[in-house]
Amino acid sequence: MLGAMDGPGERLRLIEAARAGDLAAFDLLMRQYERLVLTTAFRLLGNLEDAKHASQEVFLRLYRNLGKLERSDNVSGWLYKVTVNVCHDQRRRRPAQAPVEEAENVAARTADPQQELTAAERRRALELSLRLLSERERAAVVLRDLEGLSTEEVARAMGSTQATVRSQISQARVKMKGFLERYFRRHV
């Protein structure tokens, strides 16, 4: 059912209806973009409850800006940008439950040196390495590597330049690599 609504014409119709006060139309619009918003927020914040709060705020902003989006053909780009901003605000207001600096200590306590590295353990190590990054670096990696956006799209979503984004991504990858090497050297 939703697949049939992916076209720009159908999306425009939904935006117009939602703008006229049709909440059912807005519900359909949310269904189209909920994966994009919630998974991005989850990847940026690292906590599902916080991500749900952030997504709620993003969709409320979407509702308030329907008029602006009627003329835009890049709703996804707008949503990425707002999601990054909302997550940034949320992090400033409510710092992450497990501080970033403790990530290495957490990894050291929980990994079993005798055990062969399982896929789950490796995933956990990668997740921890993401937490070590600065907010901008993490956003760049999430949008570029996990969401699959182009460098240009990432720059637009982060209100930055392509050169800055490239630098942030490369620095982030180097940091992650360094963390993983230390992690595995300690535990393998």
Binding site: M30, L38, Y63
Partner: peptide
Amino acid sequence: NWLKEAHREPIAPAHYAAVRARVL
């Protein structure tokens, strides 16, 4: 690739529904 794999796990539909319900 590992990172992408780790994040491929879908979020349960109930969480999406909860967000939509809160917004509405």
